[in-house]
Nucleic acid binder design. Structure first.
Lengths: 143, 143
DNA sequence: GCCGTGCTTCGACAGACGTCAAGATAGAAG
DNA sequence: CTTCTATCTTGACGTCTGTCGAAGCACGGC
């Protein structure tokens, strides 16, 4: 899968372009190109199985999960799960890394944060926007 | 359109259930039902035309736009625009109200805020999360 | 009443999507 | 090297989706 990682970086870069520093949907109309880029991500999340996969990976211990962890949850064949993971990968939402026999997936919180920032109308003092696509954080604190 | 407004309220209620007070994707795995509800909204946003419609409406003066404002932007037939608006409506993302000859659409910022809240991992002090969810916007009469 | 305008619904069609079984590939263990 | 396990790719199938033209509704104006 490392073959298409270039494309996935490209997705992230394109999305960063769309989001800019902080341009929510409600501020100004999206251009045709911007809407295509954004829609690609939303379409990837527009399937129940893929959404569950995303949350399974994101909430799994260590922030990563191997395919074997994911397959058992669904009544779906292996190839189907693999297909959905590929869609998520190509949308830039997750990355996969092979370690020995298993392939571990993890989400890209930067992308989720960017998409989230596009939606909220005014971004009053939303810190998600500034976050610069570096390390993943997983600073889950409960209050 | 007033015929299905009941269903649209239902969508919002269901989504509020999913989001709960503040449950991001990364905190715990989505249930099958939750993922179906959420995916419905993302799927509606997973088309470039619909995303542009959404941002055109959201960013239009007064927070609303009539279909005539929207049709000219695209190289698409009237029925196609109408179809996309219907999808957005049934996902609970916009509402439509007839005033005289024209029908005006406006977005539901609550729903955008809810969806946005689901995506961001920790929501450190994100005010979008607390959203009231009580009052509904348009008192359109049934039938 | 009648007509014109704005918007939606209907019916149809090509293309995209989700799913599976079967085959292919990569690594680990004999 | 051979075999076994985990995962991906391919090819096929039925269903869903985006699009259009034509027809239908709801107004306002005559």
């Amino acid at each position: 899968m490392s073959k298409q990682d270039g494309h996935e970086e490209q997705v992230l870069a394109a999305l960063a372009e769309v989001v800019g520093c902080c341009s929510p949907l409600a501020r100004e109309p999206l251009s045709a190109d911007q809407s295509v880029e954004l829609a690609r991500v939303f379409k990837a999340m527009g399937d129940p199985v893929r959404l569950r996969l995303l949350s399974l990976i994101a909430s799994h211990a260590g922030g990563e999960a191997c395919v074997c962890d994911l397959t058992d949850v669904f009544d779906l064949s292996g190839p189907t799960i693999s297909h959905h993971l590929k869609v998520l990968r190509e949308a830039g939402l997750i990355t996969g890394e092979r370690r020995g026999t298993w392939i571990y997936y993890r989400v890209r919180p930067e992308l989720l944060a960017q998409v989230s920032a596009v939606l909220v109308p005014a971004a009053p003092d939303n810190p998600a926007v500034v976050m610069p696509a570096g390390r993943e954080a997983l600073p889950v604190v409960e209050q």
